[in-house]
């Protein structure tokens, strides 16, 4: 068996693949956080719970209505996104004039409620979610075996991330959005309905989290706690990348996933903490984050 740095290539590529998968979710989630933060100036603590909701709604669509994975992929983001828009209209919109910290506290409370309700209903043990038949099996790439579903997750999240980047940076809609981030009052004066745009943006960010949840369901088990610890790692990713740049949060997400995967090969004890250690180093060296600008 071939080895690199004394590690069998099979294990190395296997962990790299897991790293890329985790990185896909980090990227999708930190992208949603960045989009929401850009316009609302709120750190959405509910993001992890909304990711979990995505997985659960997919599970329920499957077990109650018999709808398969592809239907879930199509239906879950708008469903969960709509609940997000409701939250924005009813609660978050009341807080824009206050200190940003209240938004964090409110969304933290909402996360506790949502996670608690799901735990009451479904217990703490994970529920199985089967892979779509079209993507079962895998292919041999010569140097490693790639399960089809995992390849799909990586490609799909890359496409979604780059698509979001394209819409925000290159289209007219995106330019309105960026303008509203800079100066909402002026954009409103030009006749654009900024409050509606804010609602839709929050809904979109939440839908991204839910989409990540559906894609995660066949890989990780569907459980009420699945988003709670993940969101803290994503926060660290966001601190490392800085939220100023969309492309930056995508790159940081994937990059840190890979670093985490490699750590599992070379120094497994640190694999849980490596992202936090990197965060500490980045804070010491470049407090604004890799792609951020200090305000």
């Amino acid at each position: 068996m071939t080895e690199i740095f004394g590690v069998p290539t099979q294990a190395l590529f296997g962990q790299l693949l897991i790293g890329l998968i985790n990185g896909s979710f980090y990227a999708l989630l930190s992208l949603g956080l960045a989009v929401i933060f850009g316009l609302l100036n709120i750190i959405n603590f509910t993001h992890g719970a909304q990711y979990m909701m995505g997985a659960f709604v997919a599970y329920l669509l499957g077990s109650k209505l018999g709808l398969g994975y592809w239907w879930s992929l199509l239906l879950v983001p708008p469903i969960v996104g709509a609940t997000g828009m409701l939250i924005e209209r009813l609660m978050l919109s009341k807080l824009y004039k206050l200190d940003h910290l209240y938004g964090l506290l409110l969304t933290f409370g909402l996360a506790l409620i949502i996670q608690g309700l799901f735990r009451n209903e479904f217990g703490t043990s994970g529920l199985p979610f089967s892979m779509p038949a079209e993507l079962s099996g895998g292919r041999n790439l010569g140097f490693m075996f790639l399960p089809n579903y995992r390849g799909w997750v990586i490609v799909a999240s890359l496409v979604i991330c780059l698509g979001t980047w394209f819409v925000i940076e290159k289209t007219k809609l995106g330019s309105y959005l960026r303008a509203a981030t800079e100066n909402p009052a002026l954009v409103q004066a030009f006749g654009i309905n900024v409050p509606r745009m804010i609602t839709l943006t929050y809904g979109f960010g939440v839908a991204l989290a839910a989409l990540a949840g559906v894609m995660a369901a066949p890989i990780y088990q569907v459980s009420p706690q699945m988003g709670a610890d993940l969101i803290i790692v994503v926060f660290a990713v966001v601190v490392i990348g800085g939220m100023g740049s969309i492309l930056g949060s995508i790159l940081t997400g994937f990059g840190l996933g890979i670093v985490e995967g490699l750590t599992k090969v070379f120094y497994p004890e640190a694999s849980n903490t490596v992202i936090f250690v990197i965060m500490a180093i980045v804070l010491a060296a470049k407090p604004a984050g890799l792609f951020g600008t200090q305000k």
Binding site: V233, V238, N272, F276, V277, A280
Partner: peptide
Amino acid sequence: LLAIRRQGIYFAMTTLALAQMIYFY
């Protein structure tokens, strides 16, 4: 020394992440 370098929401996220690191340790 690390967390004070960021303000507002970033301070909250940084302290949360540092605490999580300590937890895993």
